[in-house]
Design a protein around this nucleic acid. Structure first.
Length: 700
RNA sequence: GGACUCGUAGCUCAGCGGCUUAGAGCGCUUCAUUGACAUUGAAGAGGUCACAGGUUCAAAUCCUGUCGGGUCCACCA
């Protein structure tokens, strides 16, 4: 053995050895206890980041259970990540001076497919570098034909059970990204928005969005507000920028008499609250802003202006016409922005597919409350239940090319004759219209929200492998992922999993924290504090890097990563290596006969202490306290075994007391097995030094 | 406005189903060392456990409040 452990020399070889010998593979084995984790599929559009490295928690569980002798499956995969990927791809196009509008749908799709496939390969290589014991033969991609089929079937089943519907509502639309989003993709930001007090006939009313005034179809006051009661139900006449207009006044409880002047303009097509108010009072929807973010033909001279330009111009014109009462410049409110590009979200009316969430959430809630699914750390249970209680219906339509196209169709000839589309849902493209016999179908051009497909991941991956595999491993044992996607992914997997299979998708949820920089700051490209996991592996080895993500970290808490942390673990790895080296050198040395008695008591103490360590370790591992498990091995091997016992027994071993050496070796090997889930490359390398190149610590 | 979380050694953090001198990693100080390892060993310095009350024989640990970070959610136009 060399003086130091050099990870770069062994990691690739060892991983190949594992993979070639099928040590990560799993089979249906009724005689053994199944243990299964589905890897959260990384997006196939970029390199792995530290969030993915945190899946090391899964590898720890997987390898631990393999060593326990369970039948273990860790199933890898990749997510096409619809909008996200298209966004990344468009950024690349931009560098070449192109945009998505330069290509037709099919060409664009093909280009992205190619892009994704090359990224996917790269991503898989990187997962291997982390040492993950994944069963590659069973890997899946969310765009695999068989997976897509399942997604289609789920959609159809939801539709048939009346849990999916199509409706015109206001959606969260990003006019830059060109698509609608679900509520979760909207980030509310605190902003200073001037509050404009405009004159509306006999009233003055306050608004932050004067440019939507052309879409006003009513005014609202609180019915209890004595100042305005007499106007309720009447139409008023007012002077506007496009001349005189008449507008109806309604009474609505949602109006706060203390805000502004107590009078609100109702713009049902461009404000979520107003949309609801409008519905209550039958006010028409008048859309004056287009999906391109510009004012439309209903706005006279303002047509063609972007919202911000229009606002400026309109305020000027209002002033000029004496229609502006005052401006409160310091007003603060929260504005919805696009989580991706950061621009203001425009609420716009659009017809979309919605999942009726409540019935699904109720079942999910029951499963969580009953304990069919356990959540670790337990504080997240409350948060999950909060979400399940507060989800609104889920818009799953995305105006994006890259994704699973929604299998909904309408018959063109029928649509023409009836002037309205009647949608129907079909897993495969229909051949003939069942009503008019027509064959000219138009498929919905939208694709599914990525989370709609990834929400089906646990059962889709298993079912597309084989029925036997599904029956054996489902519900899976643990879902391990970052707490930041609890509502996006975990909650939806539970809802869709129960809906589709009648069973929970996993029995336990373990959530890890976010990796931050050494000062506890969030990593971001703009701050320049992003750490690349692969670079850390190159520098210190995969084992040291992996251990540094867990050592001394409370489960579910955020982690501050620094080089110093990894160095500490690199040193630990080297220490373990050198214990092995010492034992190896000792066993090679010639044994001289000895007269003095071996130090029996110390050896017995070592044995006892090891037993205690083993018990602690097991307790920690079985209760998801992996950091403590690692800590107990660290403490024992370094500070007890090496610093104390080895120092005491060193001379005897070097002088050839073979029974002492054997006891030391026994405890050492056992500890290698305890450490293996955390530091697989190191422990396997040492194992093979003592047990032969063809042996594996995993195959004992 | 609601919820969650954190405030412990110079730094990053454990400990928090109450009980001995409050811990780790890194950093720092002194010493040691030519055959396991300087990616080492030994010894050590360093903390009013944010603050104020309360419960208790006993609190960093439980409760209440205050201050200060962080995060998530929320249709105040």
């Amino acid at each position: 053995m060399d003086k130091n452990f050099t990870p770069a020399q062994v990691e690739e070889k060892i991983y190949d050895f594992w993979e070639k010998n099928g040590l990560f593979e799993s089979h249906v084995n009724k005689g053994k206890k199944p243990f299964c984790i589905i890897l959260p599929p990384p997006n196939a559009n970029a390199n792995l980041h530290l969030g993915h490295a945190m899946y090391v928690y899964e590898d720890v569980m997987i390898r631990y259970h393999r060593l326990l002798g369970d039948e273990v499956l860790w199933l890898p995969g990749a997510d096409h990540a619809g909008f996200e990927t298209q966004y990344v791809f468009e950024k690349n196009l931009q560098k070449d001076g192109k945009s998505r509008f330069d290509y037709d749908r099919e060409t664009l799709f093909k280009m992205i497919w190619k892009f994704v496939m090359s990224n996917k390969g790269n991503m898989e290589k990187q997962l291997r570098r982390l040492g993950f014991a994944l069963d590659w033969k069973k890997q899946r991609f969310t765009m695999d034909k068989a997976v897509v089929k399942i997604v289609h079937e789920t959609f159809k089943k939801l539709y048939e059970k009346d849990l999916v519907y199509r409706a015109v509502r206001l959606v969260n639309y990003c006019t830059f990204c060109g698509t609608a989003f679900s509520d979760l993709e909207v980030v509310h930001k605190e902003k200073v928005s001037p509050l404009y007090y405009m004159k509306y006939g006999p009233f003055v009313l306050a608004t932050t969005r004067p440019e939507t005034k052309f879409g006003d179809t009513g005014l609202a006051v609180n019915p209890k507000d004595k100042r305005y009661q007499k106007w309720i139900g009447k139409e008023i006449e007012a002077e506007g920028l496009l001349g005189k207009f008449r507008i109806k006044v309604v009474g609505d409880d949602s109006v706060d008499p203390k805000f502004g002047t107590g009078v609100v303009k109702v713009t049902p097509a461009h404000d979520f609250t107003d949309f609801e108010t409008g519905k209550r009072h039958n006010l028409p929807l008048k859309q004056v802003i287009g999906y391109d973010g510009k004012l439309n033909h209903l706005t006279g001279p303002y047509q063609g202006l972007y919202v911000n330009q229009a606002r400026k111009k309109i305020v000027e014109d209002l002033k000029a016409k004496g229609l502006l009462d005052k401006i409160d410049e310091g007003y603060q409110n929260r504005v919805g922005t696009c989580y991706k590009c950061g621009r203001t979200i425009e609420p716009l009316p659009l017809e979309q597919w919605y999942v009726k969430v409540k019935p699904l959430a109720d079942k999910a809630k029951e499963a969580v409350e009953k304990g069919d699914i356990k959540i670790y750390p337990k504080r997240f249970k409350k948060i999950l239940l909060w979400w399940l209680n507060n989800f609104r219906d889920w818009n799953i339509s995305r105006q994006v090319v890259w994704g699973i196209r929604i299998p909904a169709y309408y018959c063109r000839s029928k649509a023409k004759s009836q002037k309205s589309k009647e949608w129907f849902v079909s897993v495969d493209r229909p051949e003939k219209c069942q009503i008019c016999g027509g064959q000219d179908f138009e498929q919905d051009t939208d694709t599914f929200d990525t989370w709609f497909s990834s929400g089906q991941w646990p059962f889709a991956t298993l079912q597309t492998n084989s029925k036997e595999l599904f029956d054996y491993f489902y519900p899976t044992s643990v879902m391990e992922t970052g707490y930041d996607i609890l509502p996006w992914w975990v909650a939806r997997m539970i809802m869709l999993g129960i809906f589709s299979t009648g069973k929970v998708p996993f029995k336990n949820v373990f959530l890890h924290g976010i990796v931050r920089d050494k000062n506890g700051k969030k990593m971001s490209k703009s701050k320049g504090n992003v750490i690349n996991p692969i670079e850390m592996i190159d520098k210190y080895g995969a084992d040291a890097f992996r251990a540094s993500l867990m050592f001394g970290v409370k489960e579910g808490a955020d982690l501050s990563l620094s080089d110093e942390r990894v160095v500490g673990m690199r040193n630990f790895a080297n220490k373990i290596w050198n214990i092995g080296r010492f034992l190896e050198i000792s066993q090679k040395s010639k044994f001289k006969s000895q007269n003095n008695k071996p130090k029996v008591k110390i050896i017995n103490d070592l044995g006892k202490e090891f037993e205690l360590e083993q018990k602690k370790y097991k307790k920690y591992m079985d209760s998801y306290q992996f950091s403590k498990a690692l800590g107990s091995v660290y403490e024992f091997l370094w500070h007890r075994y090496a610093d104390y016992y080895l120092e005491q027994l060193k001379e005897e071993v070097l002088n050839g007391k073979i029974e002492v050496l054997d006891s030391l070796k026994k405890v050492y090997f056992e500890n290698l097995r305890l450490l293996h889930p955390f530091m697989p490359f190191l422990t396997e390398t040492i194992w093979q030094v003592f047990h032969g190149k063809d042996s594996s610590i995993l195959a004992v």
